[in-house]
């Protein structure tokens, strides 16, 4: 996103001698899709895979964006982020399961009437818990990386166990609402409906985030804080407050991602957050720690690669993401869009 901001303010940028907008990483996504086309060798399958990959990428982006911003702003890496994903999913089931009358109805709007409150409540709860988490777990260990990693890991263990205490040890099956199941068929191309919904929600989040970051005062402060936190503080803004806000928003987004991921997998387990975390870490490393735009592109790449290799060589699916990460880090050791300060 840094690059898009650059283009938006090109006039001032040139005057300040800013570096030119960097489009190369963004071109990777279509390039990857084009490379995969001859490999898959089947246009309808390729379209299906591409849409599936983009949908998966957007879901990962929803979960990863908060984490990368938190890191960029305060140099805090929250290994407990996965707990909010699981929490969101479990809170989602609390709303969705009693409303099974609506979710099994064959009406898109009734389905949405069940899913939207589930998402909102899940976001509210994970946001609130995120606030408490920040206060209790993270505040005491600012600026100490080792302790941060350990303490957020500990927080993750405790949170997972508490989820077990509240919701019991078993995984909860969660069926997708009726109208979200199945696929649209255009000729030979089959596109799962849920993937389209995921794409829609993911793009909505991305656009909203882009607008907030680039068109509002708060967004300006956040971007400035990522670039140079000390300077923002010196100008009299309380970056701690900003940070708490970003942390809460990131946790809420993790909750949203958790509901989406739960509907995608159709089961909810306490360990699901930690399982996705691996993908999320890969994404934010690829993107350049702290960069939302890089995170977005990284998520797309990971989603596409996972789906293409899942089709071409299923056994390599997760290894392929590691390989992707290694290749990108060989090209740009700091990630696609390195954040200036580091």
């Amino acid at each position: 996103m840094a690059s898009m901001a650059d283009t938006a303010k090109n006039e001032d940028g040139a005057a300040l001698g800013r570096p030119k907008a960097d489009f190369l990483p963004a071109l990777l996504v279509p390039a990857l899709a084009l490379v995969a086309l001859p490999l898959v060798f089947d246009l309808p399958a390729w379209i299906t895979l591409t849409v599936a990959g983009l949908a998966m990428g957007l879901m990962i982006f929803i979960m990863a964006s908060g984490l990368t911003l938190v890191f960029g702003l305060m140099d805090v890496l929250n290994f407990g982020h996965g707990a909010f994903i699981s929490l969101g999913a479990f809170v989602g089931t609390v709303i969705l399961l009693p409303l099974s009358g609506w979710t099994t109805a064959d009406s898109f709007w009734l389905n949405m009437a069940a899913v939207v409150p589930a998402i909102l409540v899940a976001m509210a709860v994970s946001g609130a818990v995120g606030y408490a988490f920040e206060r209790v777990i993270i505040t005491p260990v600012y600026g100490q990386h080792l302790k941060q990693i350990l303490i957020t890991m500990g927080g993750l263990i405790v949170a997972e166990q508490l989820i077990h205490v509240i919701w019991g040890p078993d995984q909860i099956p969660l069926t997708r609402p009726t109208t979200f199941r199945g696929a649209f068929i255009f000729g030979d191309v089959a596109i799962e409906k849920f993937r389209l919904i995921a794409v829609a929600i993911g793009l909505l989040v991305f656009v909203a985030m882009y607008m907030v970051l680039n068109r509002t005062r708060v967004g300006l402060l956040i971007r400035a804080g990522v670039e140079n936190g000390e300077m923002v503080e010196a100008l009299g803004y309380r970056i701690r407050r900003l940070f708490v806000g970003v942390f809460v928003a990131g946790s809420a987004l993790a909750g949203l991602g958790g509901v989406m991921w739960a509907l995608y997998q159709e089961t909810v387990t306490a360990a699901m957050g930690m399982q996705v975390m691996v993908l999320i870490f890969i994404v934010i490393i690829i993107g350049g720690l702290g960069s939302v735009g890089g995170c977005f592109i990284g998520a797309m790449l990971v989603g596409l690669v996972a789906n293409y290799t899942g089709f071409l060589a299923p056994k390599l699916a997760l290894g392929s993401n590691i390989l992707l990460m290694v290749l990108i880090l060989l090209w740009r050791p700091q990630g696609l869009y390195p954040v200036a300060r580091r």
Partner: peptide, 27 residues
Amino acid sequence: FSLRVKAIFFAMITLAVATAFAILASQ
């Protein structure tokens, strides 16, 4: 590959590699 950089980076890379290895072993 990764010890040149920050502790956090190394932690994430090892996490990813270990997960990939576990999946490989079960595949």
